[in-house]
Design a protein around this nucleic acid. Structure first.
Lengths: 126, 126
DNA sequence: AATATAACGCAACAGTGTTGCATTAACAAA
DNA sequence: TTTGTTAATGCAACACTGTTGCGTTATATT
């Protein structure tokens, strides 16, 4: 996987994630940065950042791909469980820090998992 | 949502799920029944069966939509947590019967959740 | 400055899933 | 059984996120 060059696209995207405490969908990034970067570039930079262990990705409610900064993940080994929360009202997605104990399934070797909790966030839950 | 008519498509699709202990992706059903039914019909019947609480759906690894028979779900209220297992080798998806205790998140109202465990099934895990 | 090659933009494509509309089939009532 | 209502179907075209090929540009190394 070559070296990461510090291009404008990499810089801008990293900034987005450093300034955001929530996860961001590829769709939103493309919409926001449409006039600045080609969508292909955005997809490729996100892929690369994920490969290099800087971001991790997961699928949100409608099959959209979301990205967020990794915490305590290395390029080769991500934390086993990535719990995320998506607000059904405003659509916002957050990474959760709580840990979930996985069920032990007989005759199966669990390698990874994705847990998506859905409901209402504090802003929408009144 | 009108009445469900017992059409050939409904009959055949229900049969598929009654004869299968695992979840089935819309993609696979379309591939299998291509010569019999139009894909639009298949998507619409699956939607309808889900609306009526007979099937439930969830997203698999690549954002593909999977369907499985509901157990203990009603049309209005599905069981809170749907744990599923997808084999990363053969792609098979199963509904799990184990229950998972959800983490309690402050200031959030969890309404539903999707837990997808990924790894190797007994057939592929040797 | 010259060179190697990663990253980029563009266009065209891939795949799953959706929509509009005219036609057909299921079901209830006469 | 026939009639009438309307749900269900097939077809074609579309919508959308994400991908691929390729020629060009920019980064970093020598």
């Amino acid at each position: 996987m070559g070296v990461i060059r510090k291009t404008k696209a990499v810089e801008v995207l990293l900034n987005e994630f450093n300034n955001s405490s929530t996860a961001i969908s590829a769709k939103k990034l493309i919409a926001e940065l449409d006039s600045t970067f080609n969508k292909t570039t955005i997809y490729r930079v996100l892929d690369k950042l994920e490969d290099d262990g800087i971001l991790h990705s997961f699928l949100g409610k409608e099959g959209l791909k979301w990205y967020a900064k990794c915490n305590g993940c290395t390029a080769s080994e991500h934390a086993d469980l990535h719990p995320h929360f998506q607000c059904l009202s405003c659509g916002k997605v957050e990474c959760l820090t709580v840990s979930v104990t996985l069920p032990k399934i007989p005759n199966k070797k669990i390698e990874t998992s994705q847990l998506l909790l859905q409901g209402k966030c504090e802003a929408c839950f009144v």
